[in-house]
Amino acid sequence: MGFLAAIGRAFLIFLEATGRLAQFSATALSHLVRPPIYGRLIVRQMVDIGYYSLPVVGLTALFTGMVLALQSFSGFARFQAEGAVATVVVLSLVRELGPVLAGLMVAGRIGASMAAEIGTMRVTEQIDALTTLSTNPFKYLVVPRLIAGLTMLPLLVIVADIIGVFGGFLVAVYRLSFNPAAYLSQTALYLTANDVMAGLVKAAVFGFLIALMGCYHGYQSRGGAQGVGAATTNAVVSASILILVCDYLITGIFFS
């Protein structure tokens, strides 16, 4: 009996959390389309997410591209398919690793800082103060972050893809003695618009989810420093899990 009650209680808590998140998202989306829109804040968030994430995302992409070239070469050499290295590097990056790795890196960097900032504002009553100063906290805090996440991640991923392919190119040419021109034409040969599209859709969805989780957990935080710390952790963990789940779902939609 106690066992069943425990399951029931856990299930109710789960439903409650889901409901709260759904309500939060609905409110955020309704404010996304209603004026006023705070341009300055959107730009500031875009710079924060897009520009300042470049080093982290770029480095990740560079080494991922390099290791992909190395791995696929040593693997494919076993059945004399070394020619496929360029194709494997570009397709895995554009369709899969670019968006997922950029998403995970940005989730750690941006999702955490959003949750910490909004969470601190919540526990120090700054969000209440916003409300009393005729400013809707959803419009002022949440919407700029959602817009910035949604638009900046695809741009970051484009950059990441290019840097990743370049990393693969470097390894292929300078370590594995590929012909540079042949490698590049091989890179372009099998890449379709659909591949790029799928990668960018993923990036936009991931960017939105990262910002949503950061804002949601920050907004819901309670109690002092400990509550903010928990919100930060929850934002990063939930965004990372959602990224991996949605990655599977979107891949299913595009390539089935």
Binding site: T124, A129, N136
Partner: peptide, 20 residues
């Protein structure tokens, strides 16, 4: 509530200043 709240000014006990 928005038009109602516009009538108020509130001093919070702990200030609640925007630290950014």
């Amino acid at each position: 509530l928005e038009p109602i709240r516009a009538k108020f000014g509130m001093l919070f006990q702990d200030g609640a200043l925007f630290d950014s």
